[in-house]
Nucleic acid binder design. Structure first.
Lengths: 352, 352
DNA sequence: CGATAGCTTGATTTCGTTCAAGAGAAGTGG
DNA sequence: CCACTTCTCTTGAACGAAATCAAGCTATCG
């Protein structure tokens, strides 16, 4: 059961709101002034706070300010109640991190709708997403399912991409966001002499190509199907409208992209000083976790040696030699050319 | 002279606003309905648009929607005028990308202030910042100077860091944003065997350590002064308050961090397949442009061979050998141990 | 003035690339 | 369906680039 804290100095209004929310199935706490409100928020850690702006002593802004300072309460959705909507008031409140503004007098449904929407959004945005490429994908996916994201996959064209056909290529301007319904896709950068370095691998459920859309720049890499894939094509505006109009989502994206920087820095470190053995080992576990995420029966890695080599950043022959070594060391097995991992721990904790 | 487009169906109000703005020194265009307003916006490309919400036929939302679709007009600051401030109205407007909301009746100064603020912000946020680390820095710096950024350097402690003292280290939680007043700083990641890989170099005027603050994660790298430096320490909240409360700034950061990903991917590509010669050449020009940005007389690169090597991702001896090669090829010169670049083009366009 | 850290060159070794070639596997077309 | 090409995978041998080890040199600092 969700709990809601109501802060208002008018007894009548406070009790009235509490009653409405009780009826709606929420657990309610009340506080009759700002100071007590802050204390209650810290103590009870409610799922949402409704707070009046105009209060003696510590007003609504003060309450919001204090709550945002405290890491325990900074993320609790916060809805302001205000009598007359003065423009500067509301802007101040939103600027300080309030999530919504409700003008008195208000309809019950108006309040309930606002609360429900905020709670829903909070759930989506505060569930932890893993730090890899999947993170963005899962988040967008959740948003989409929730209905907050207007994108409806079914409204868009779904295309079949044959193996080795490209979704987009370097230098082109991004017009679409891609959603991978089935298959596998790689994105890579080209070196002068024609060698490819694979920067990202995508599997079912991944969104592809959101970075250059966010940046509003041309593609600097090329994406290509590595097996027959079904891909949904979404106009870029649908995506940018969402990200650039909602602070919580934008915030989430800042974090996701920052994590991407870290991941790339880590890869740089390993490429600079790590032995080929280690890099191959890491690549195998990376690829494995990317492509066999959910509990699929098969433990096989099903992409070409060349692609693995290009993900590691080495020659195909060198990769194969390392694979042979791993095979004789019983860390992996090869059946029908497909790689099966026997011992993940051994793979990730190679002594040299 | 800045031009402003006023869209309102009430002749009196429209003319009145135009008059005020004319007096304030703006060039004004007017349109008496939404359709004409959109046409005028595309044709005149004003610096800002003031638009009434309630209009027959095409209302304010429609105008905003159309303008956001068009790449010519999508970035023009947009201020809504509205009679009664209905909560849902305003939220809808802000959600669609309006920059401000003004409630009728309003004071002249209120309108003028809002316009001035938006134009100022627009200037800062739409000037192009280079894609490297400097980009973030310059932006924050501009914001700070403008007064939109509350941070005032003078209010904060300024500390002296001796050579080789660290600002922060891996695993710690970020509490501050650092601003480099003088000196040079490097940030690096540690490899198992103790080798360092330098991920970023910072010089005068750079902000350091904003990424983990944005992410709200611990540091995964270590920052250390490479010469005596003066550094201003800014509490993290000052920074997060700014970024997470203003969509335009948040947007800017998404772009900046995305660019960082690209930069790192590029470095990965080179590290994977580029020859040592090329990597050293690029490192030299990178370091040169980072540390000798403004028209300083000296063309010398003044950091240790070891640090350069760690930026390239190679052994110090190997770096030095490559430097010797460049020296005999007359691409660089070495005086008193300091490296001087003779020929930047030759350095960046090495045949092999 | 000695000591220590940073810079440079030489010799040796190691790891990974490249070239070469064969064995399978998988398309392709008559 | 079979002979054909073509692509992928694999192993061998030779080569080469960069790391490592070693040692001398130079500048800097107490």
């Amino acid at each position: 059961m969700r709990s809601i804290l109501i802060i208002d100095d008018h007894d009548e209004i406070r009790e009235n709101i509490a009653e409405i929310l009780d009826l709606a199935g929420y657990k309610t706490f009340t506080a009759e002034n700002g100071k007590k409100g802050v204390e209650a928020a810290i103590k009870q850690k409610p799922d949402l706070i409704v707070c009046d702006v105009m209060m003696p002593e510590l007003d609504g802004y003060g309450v919001l300010h204090l709550l945002k300072k405290n890491s325990l309460t900074e993320n609790i959705p916060f809805i302001f109640l205000t009598a007359k909507t003065e423009r500067s008031d509301f802007r101040k409140g939103m600027g300080m991190g309030a999530d919504d503004y409700i003008t008195k007098p208000f309809e019950d449904t108006e309040l309930l709708d606002a609360i429900e929407m905020r709670l829903k959004k909070y759930d989506i945005l505060h569930s932890q997403y893993p730090s890899n490429e999947k993170g963005a994908t899962e988040m967008i996916d959740d948003l989409r399912k929730s209905g907050l994201f207007k994108m409806e996959m079914d409204n868009y064209e779904s295309m079949e991409y044959q193996k080795k056909t490209s979704l987009y290529s370097e230098g082109k301007r991004p017009k679409f966001l891609f959603y991978l319904k089935s298959g596998k896709v790689k994105s890579f950068r080209l070196h002068q002499d024609g060698k490819e370095y694979i920067t990202n691998l995508y599997s079912v459920g991944d969104f592809i190509g959101y970075m250059p859309i966010l940046e509003n720049k041309s593609y600097e890499d090329t994406a290509e199907a590595i097996e027959k894939s079904e891909i949904v094509i979404i106009p870029r505006e649908e995506f940018t409208d969402l990200v650039f109009n909602d602070m919580t989502i934008a915030t989430k994206f800042i974090k996701l992209v920052s994590q991407n920087v870290k991941e790339k820095e880590q890869r740089l470190l390993e490429l600079a000083y790590g032995s080929l053995r280690k890099r191959v080992a890491r690549a195998l576990s990376d690829i494995y976790s990317k492509f066999n995420s959910s509990g699929e029966k098969s433990t096989a890695i099903d992409i070409s040696r060349e692609d693995i080599a290009q993900y590691v950043g080495t020659a195909t022959e060198s990769l194969i030699r390392t694979l042979s070594d791993f095979k004789t060391e019983k860390i992996i097995e090869i059946k029908d050319g497909k790689i099966h991992i026997n011992n993940i721990e051994k793979l990730t904790n190679l002594p040299y």
